[in-house]
């Protein structure tokens, strides 16, 4: 029952309560810097949660290390703040042990792509039903301002006073390469978009990956400003909608056309370009090639795509494991310890 004493039927037949955003808040003081983009992400996740109709005891938030990884402490669900980069491994264990739980992974660019790159890749390729949100602020915040694997080449910061000489990695490219079945991007400053995408992620079954552009106002302020600011966003970002042509701009007159395997920005109505020439977005394409091309589009050459790049279904790791267990029980019978202990060549000594 909720605070008002009303009991209602939950989504999966449980006598559940209608939860509110407040039910997902904890009494812990939120310790991010004032103005940090993390607040917005927390707010949207707390907003989406009650709408999912899942009792909160069935939800687990698992994080690694970094500013973003404080997240579980602020969610009134089960939570596990683990070690740097390894959250997907812990989450895999939780989900495999109890597939009935909804398991979220909260991570950052350093956590997921640097120290935890390996686990990130393998959790995705196994298609474990995990909801991974990567807070990408392109900097190390918690350790106070070193460059991260997504920092732009040449960026000056604490550990690279003359500018970085590391080429950055693209988180989406990695996710596609790792066979993720759900890949999306959103940003902290657009709560509406963010909550829609979080909701999509929550409902996807399989390894889901959401990159959120998150502003670190202390160490990397304005990292996404050039295209996320209200005045320019329509011209510099492009929304992805399944089955719709990839058009953008205030007047919806520009779009993305494929020239061979190279995307190009074209203006509809100019040089004979019509709407029919514009690439139509398909989230469900079996191969991620086109989504990969979109995922690599960057400002200023291209508008930055926002939304769901890929959403396909395939059996999950935990389902297949459960399937093997039932198959083994079917063929061999449920485990009989007496039989196991007495297996192999045995003999009696009298």
């Amino acid at each position: 029952m909720n605070e008002n004493g009303q009991a209602i039927e939950g989504a999966n037949g449980h006598a559940a309560v209608k939860l509110t955003r407040k039910d997902f808040q904890t009494d812990q003081e939120v310790r991010w810097c004032p103005g940090c983009g993390d607040y917005s992400i927390l707010a949207q996740v707390q907003k989406v949660m009650p709408e999912l109709g899942i009792p909160k005891e069935k939800i687990v938030f698992i994080s690694g290390i970094g500013c973003s990884s404080r997240f579980p402490y602020y969610m009134n669900t089960y939570g596990f703040h683990t070690i740097h980069g390894r959250a997907p491994a812990f989450a895999t264990g939780v989900k495999v042990a109890n597939p009935d739980l909804q398991v979220w992974v909260i991570t950052g660019d350093g956590d997921a792509l640097s120290i935890g790159g390996n686990h990130f890749i393998h959790a995705l390729r196994r298609n474990v039903d995990l909801k991974i949100i990567l807070f990408n602020n392109r900097i190390y915040g918690l350790t106070k301002g070193q460059y991260s694997p997504t920092s732009e080449l040449g960026k000056k910061n604490k550990s690279a006073p003359m500018g970085t000489i590391d080429y950055p990695i693209n988180p989406l490219s990695m996710a596609f390469a790792a066979e993720a079945t759900f890949v999306a991007r959103s940003l902290d400053v657009d709560p509406k978009h963010l909550s829609t995408i979080v909701d999509r992620l929550a409902k996807h079954k399989g390894s889901g990956f959401l990159e959120v552009y998150q502003n670190c106002n202390i160490f990397n302020d304005g990292a996404f400003k050039l295209y996320s600011d209200r005045e320019v966003k329509e011209d510099r970002m492009i929304p992805l909608e399944h089955g719709k042509p990839l058009v953008f701009g205030k007047n919806k007159d520009r779009g993305i056309r494929l020239n061979g395997v190279t995307p190009e920005v074209v203006t509809i109505g100019e040089n004979g370009v019509t709407l029919d020439d514009i690439l139509v977005h398909n989230e469900h394409a079996p191969e991620p090639n086109l989504s990969y091309i979109l995922g690599r589009m960057q400002y200023p050459e291209f508008p930055v795509p926002m939304g769901v790049f890929r959403a396909v279904e395939r059996p999950t790791y935990e389902e297949m494991l459960a399937g093997q267990i039932s198959a083994a029980i079917q063929t061999k019978g449920a485990g009989d310890l007496e039989k196991l202990l007495n297996s192999g060549e045995t003999w009696f000594i009298n």
Binding site: V60, I62, F80, T82, I83, R86, P88, A89, F90, A91, T92, G93, V94, K95, V96, A97, N98, L101, N118, H119, I121, H122
Partner: peptide, 19 residues
């Protein structure tokens, strides 16, 4: 697992979940 660290991580996760 993909490595030793993941192997123990997943085991701890499973323990947390009651295995």
């Amino acid at each position: 697992a993909e490595d030793e660290i993941s192997a123990i991580g997943a085991a701890i996760g499973a323990t947390f979940a009651g295995h």
